[in-house]
Every structure is written in C-alpha cells, then in structure tokens.
C-alpha cells in the first residue's frame, strides 16, 4: 500500500471513529458533572462522579437490575444461538423447495410491528402465569427470523465437502452440526452472540409490559425511571446510561477478534 492511500485510510477511520465516539464521550463527561452543569453545556470533566453514583444507588436498585439484565440476556443468548443456528443450518444444508417456502413464511413473522402483536402475546403469557419470570422475558425473542436467516446465509459458505467427508467417516448429522459446523462458523457465532446479547440487554417494550414487579426490573427500565421526574438529574442519568452501556461494549470488545479475525483455517 502506498503512503498516500494509507493516510487516506487511517484518516477515514479516525474521522468515523471520532464521529462515533464523540457523543459517548459527552455522556462520560456528563456523568462526572452536576446536573445543572450538564444543562449548561459544560464540556469538561467534573468532580461529581462519586456524588452521582451515590445518588443513583440511593434512588434505584442498580445492582438488582444489573443482575436481572445479565441473567435474562445470557440465558436468552445461549439458548437462542443453539435453536436458531440449528434451524439456519437445517434450512440451508438440507434445503429444498418446501424448506425455502417455510423460510419465507418465517420471515413474515418479523414484519408485523411488535405493538400489534403485543396485546395478544400478553394475554397468552398472563394466562400461562409467565409474568415476572425469566421464561416470560426470553420466550418471545428466543427464536428470531433474523438469527435463523443469518445462520442460513452463512451456512451457504460452509463447504459441502466437509459434510460428505464426515458422513463417510460415519458421523451422525447432529454430530456434524456440533463438531464441524459450530467450530468452523466461530465468526458467525461470535457476531450473532454480540448482536443477540445487545438486543436482549436493550429490550424495553416487552419487559416493561410483563415485568410488573419491582424485583424483576432490568437496567433499561432503571434508566427510563430516571427520565420520568419533574426534574431530571442529567448527571445521574448519564451515569446510569454509562453503566447500562458498558456490558454490551465489553462483550463486543471481547468478541470482536473472534468474528473479525476468525480463523477459517479448518476449512480447506
């Protein structure tokens, strides 16, 4: 690569990164300032972080909400990945006309706005006594057309030779999936895990409807609570948002190497 091109490339990346990060930086700075200074547009870090933290802990059960959010999101992510990747694999590797048709029908499922299906879904869950439960939180988004399609699309690049070879070696179909497909598709799994975790973590509309008890509150609900008063404490709010953002950011940072520098060496 020539020097000019290199400068151009890094320049582009740096500009994109600054645009991406600037608002977040503002959030971090706001979390260290007093509310009134935030509304006055102060752009320098302040010494109010500890105070904001104390206020936040006093006002909201942040610990409990973090534990809840972690519990729901991790369970949802793990089960969801298994179910959806199995289906995506099934749709692609054994594809025929009928399965392609089923796939199209499944895609329809995501096209209706959630506001329209929420009330029938709520009635179903309340009569099955699933309110305020982990199962109630995860069931509606456990299997998503989006993840199924994502695995279906990526299974397209999974070489059929491997499957054939494994079959000759006498591996059962399910073992081919677990022993060959999952390890090979590490990058897809890592990406899917990041996205699913993030969506589960930030999910708001459904939890707020089915979590009617204070002990089941999630982190986004805590953040929403803070915006409802006659007076908004912006410093405290930004700190809460920061705490709410960190887990997804950390998950991303840890997994990004796996999906962006995935080792496809196993495939030959």
């Amino acid at each position: 690569m020539t020097k000019g091109k290199k400068i151009l490339m890094y320049g582009f990346l740096i500009i994109m990164s600054i645009i991406s990060v600037f608002p977040l930086l503002w959030m971090v700075i706001a979390a260290t300032n007093k509310s009134v200074d935030v509304t006055r547009g102060r752009l320098l870090p302040g010494g109010y972080l500890i105070e904001n933290f104390k206020n936040l802990i006093a006002a909201q059960d942040v610990g409990g909400a973090m534990i809840n959010s972690f519990k729901y999101s991790v369970i949802l992510t793990v089960i969801s990945l298994v179910i959806c990747s199995l289906a995506g694999y099934g749709f692609e590797i054994y594809h025929d006309k009928a399965k392609d048709a089923v796939m199209s029908v499944i895609l329809l499922a995501m096209m209706v706005p959630f506001v329209a299906t929420m009330i029938p879904l709520f009635r179903m869950f309340s009569s099955a006594h699933l309110l305020n439960s982990t199962l109630g939180f995860i069931l509606p988004t456990l299997s998503t057309p989006f993840l199924i399609m994502m695995f279906r699309q990526s299974a397209r690049s999974f070489p059929h030779d491997i499957i054939e070879a494994a079959r000759i070696d006498g591996l059962s179909e399910i073992r081919i999936f677990f022993q060959m497909f999952i390890p090979t598709m590490r990058s897809t799994y890592a990406a899917a895990m990041t996205i699913t975790f993030m969506n589960a973590w930030n999910n708001y509309l459904w939890p707020k409807v089915i979590m009617t008890d204070a002990k089941s509150q999630t982190m986004p609900m805590v953040v929403a609570n803070l915006t409802q008063g006659y007076v908004t404490d912006y410093g405290m709010l930004m700190l809460a948002v920061l705490i709410c953002t960190l887990p997804t950011a950390i998950v991303f940072f840890c997994l990004q190497k796996s999906f962006a520098e995935g080792i496809t060496g196993a495939v030959k």
């Binding site: 006594h129 699933l130 109630g136």
Partner: peptide, 13 residues
Amino acid sequence: KADDAAADKADDA
C-alpha cells in the same frame, strides 16, 4: 397449569 415447576415465579404470583 401453574404447577409446572419451571415457572416458580408464576407460582409465587
């Protein structure tokens, strides 16, 4: 149906 153990929260309710 609430006797199903998985939903202990439901039992609580």
